[in-house]
Design a protein around this nucleic acid. Structure first.
Lengths: 252, 252
DNA sequence: ACCTGAACACCGTTCAAGT
DNA sequence: ACCTGAACACCGTTCAAGT
């Protein structure tokens, strides 16, 4: 779990983009990063650059167009809308998820459950680095190669663990959803200025509750928000994996 | 599960807002809904009105100010920002969740697990009616009385089912998170114009995958997106409840 | 086919000034 | 204390026109 910074330079090789800018005279040699020809690749690359420097909330069509030295209208040739743009960025980052331990069936990484937890934790780490991405992931599910590889890896581990196919098919969804939602939630807490205040507000609410009207909240008290994020997340994954393993599709 | 339309007219009684507009002459009797004095209540009420008529994405500070016949700056006396506004709206709607079956310990509503599933389904139904709300819920957890009542109800059922306190304390979070995330996801599918296309894109990706590189995806095939939303959601809740019940906090 | 300028129709938030 | 007009600094998306 070294949380190595994502390297979105995998897939998406530049398909035939050899400066079709036309014979309109060579621009002065190095005014800018080059004003390379527009392409999906170039757009995503620029988007990632902006995100690293200024955060996803600054990756807007207009800001991106400025970065690429053009007008916003030009981008609509390659992406249908902002959501699709964000999905493309996410796909790129998904390349940084460590699938390794999922594929080696050797015992060096622990049993299948431990390795599945590690895989999901790696996924959340990627989302954590740019938390607003997690938010995108909840809205626009990517369908790119990196996402498919992640799904396959989860399914492989569930299969290894003997989880019945039907349960695995539905479980992979919940597992990734829980991971994404957890990242999105933690994300907002880290990013937003007022998130701490909101947390405090909730904690105060939980404590200020009377045992008469809310006996269970009062009984559990501080336990409701106990544990480190790491402990909680590991428990959550184990719990959902257990549930997937033990819950038949047709109720008893 | 009658999914009765939410009636956000509970809590939040108007505290002392008796038209402190001052002696600046009575406005002509009925130009508008009244231009009643500004207050958190009035703001939330107007927000709900706009949401029902035009959707949450139209509930902006500016639109809301127009509805209240004032400038956007005026709203900042009562809400700190847009996120807080959306959280207040959500709290209001949470009053429509049917807590009933959770509280009656009688056997008429099924065992604790069935009743917990029913409660969570009721919660998702509320979110489904105005799906973008689910999105808000993922970002800004409300801390109002209706949210606390929901948490208490879930905890009560987990307690009834004999779930150990520590697991219940962490489980309530996951349960509500899964419910919210599921609603948010389904939500986007229903709302967005291109959501269907995206779904199709994912399905095509899943089908277009070779058995060589993605054996598990290929093996499960159509099962990955089988079942009705209702079947899936019920299974998800049962699985997470099972997981919460059976997963101790300290790993074996 | 691809690219663009300009426009349309909006946003959140702040601030100095009023009452 | 509460309310406001006006401004600052932005948005996404479309469209007619160019190359």
């Amino acid at each position: 779990m070294s949380t190595s910074s994502p390297s979105p330079e995998a897939s998406q090789s530049s398909r035939g983009a050899v400066s079709p800018k036309g014979p309109s005279g060579p621009r002065s040699r190095r005014e800018r990063p080059a004003k390379s020809a527009l392409s999906l690749d170039a757009i995503v690359e620029a988007a990632v650059r902006i995100m690293r420097a200024e955060g996803l909330q600054r990756v807007t069509m207009r800001r991106l167009a400025k970065e690429l030295d053009t007008g916003p209208a030009s981008l609509y040739v390659y992406v249908a809308n902002t959501a699709e743009l964000h999905a493309a960025i996410l796909e790129e980052f998904l390349g940084a998820v460590e699938l390794g331990p999922a594929q080696e069936a050797g015992a060096d990484g622990g049993d299948w459950c431990d390795r599945l937890v590690a895989l999901l934790v790696s996924y959340t780490h990627v989302l954590f680095e740019h938390p607003s991405l997690a938010h995108s992931a909840l809205v626009a599910r990517p369908a790119g190669p990196n996402y498919l590889a992640l799904v396959e890896a989860v399914l492989a581990l569930l299969h290894e663990g003997g989880v019945p196919d039907g349960q695995a098919a539905w479980g992979v969804d919940v597992l990734l959803q829980v991971a994404t939602a957890t990242a999105a939630e933690q994300a907002t807490r880290d990013e937003t200025v007022s998130a701490d205040d909101e947390d405090q507000a909730l904690i105060r609410s939980l404590h200020g509750v009377s045992a008469g009207t809310h006996p269970r909240i009062a009984a559990l008290g501080g336990d409701l928000y106990s544990g480190t994020p790491g402990q909680r997340i590991a428990w959550i994954f184990r719990a959902v994996i257990n549930g997937t393993l033990n819950t038949p599709r047709t109720p008893a």
